[in-house]
């Protein structure tokens, strides 16, 4: 379990970008961290593997205090996939990019395992290409493939759907589902409400560095658009249509219909 206890953080010693944030991340669950730009979402996740040390409060990863534990040890448990995948690439080929990371974490038979990962993520045809020559979506999926290779306990994804089309989005969903089915926890920082509503999970909304909302995805859909808009969030079209139908008295079972519409929207996306 990751415990964030009364976390405060300042970059310059003056203005706090995180203010008294507390959070528990439990294995087997999915967490969505939402909020407008500059609300402190990325700063919060950079605390989870010790890249940033709290100015006040503490973060415990399976009982290890991030202030006293080196990043290399925490990174073994908490894997963070950052927004721009290019910033992690430096090897000449895709296969070496994966195997190098597996070696860093002491995975047995790293070359063989890297080949398996390539197959699992459908990236085999790019095996010997430079990661820098891949498309935006391919780079993102490759970064997820790299960062899940050693089966970390906690997977943190920062805006994972940016630049992903239907096929790569399905591969992302598959990676999330597999991580959850193996008993891991997934933390997703996003503005993509469709992604949030695709799966039941816990929601934390940050604004001005503070937690302003805690709940579940199904409760989130009941919030009025104005309230969501203040946090930089927009309900997907199908959710707005269902809300309208409910208030007009056309339907009663809001969540049921919302699920159906979400599925229809998903099918239409893939046509």
């Amino acid at each position: 379990m990751i415990r964030v206890e009364n976390l405060w953080y300042t970059y310059d010693g003056g203005n706090y970008v995180l203010r008294d944030v507390s959070l528990e991340i439990v294995e087997g669950e999915i967490y969505y961290i939402l909020g407008d730009n500059g609300s402190g979402k990325t700063t919060l996740i950079r605390h989870l593997n010790g890249l940033l040390k709290p100015s006040r409060g503490r973060v415990l990863v399976d009982g290890l205090d991030t202030r006293e534990t080196p990043v290399s040890r925490l990174a073994e448990k908490v894997s963070i996939v950052f927004q721009n995948p290019e910033k992690m690439f430096y090897m000449p080929t895709v296969i070496e990019e994966i195997s190098t990371t597996l070696r860093n974490f002491g995975v047995e038979n790293p070359d063989q395992r890297a080949e398996e990962i390539l197959r699992e993520y459908g990236l085999s045809r790019y095996r010997d290409r430079s990661p820098f020559t891949l498309s935006g979506g391919e780079k993102r999926i490759l970064s997820i493939a790299i960062m899940t290779g050693w089966s970390p306990r906690y997977l943190v994804l920062d805006e994972p759907t940016i630049g992903l089309d239907g096929d790569y989005r399905r591969r992302l969903q598959w990676a999330i589902d597999r991580h959850l089915s193996r008993g891991g926890a997934v933390v997703i920082v996003t503005h993509d409400m469709e992604l949030v509503l695709e799966r039941e999970g816990r929601v934390v909304i940050l604004s001005g560095g503070q937690v302003v909302y805690r709940g579940y995805t199904q409760e989130l859909i009941d919030l009025d658009p104005g309230q969501l808009g203040r946090y930089g969030l927009v309900k997907p079209t199908y959710a707005r249509s269902t809300s309208y139908m409910k208030t007009s008295g056309v339907i009663r079972d809001y969540h049921g219909y919302c699920g159906v519409f979400a599925e229809v929207a998903g099918v239409l996306d893939n046509v």
Partner: peptide, 16 residues
């Protein structure tokens, strides 16, 4: 900013 992000990305993937 880019340098900071690169260092963080490399540390996160176990690079020492």
């Amino acid at each position: 900013r880019v340098l900071t992000e690169i260092v963080e990305a490399q540390l996160s993937r176990g690079h020492r």
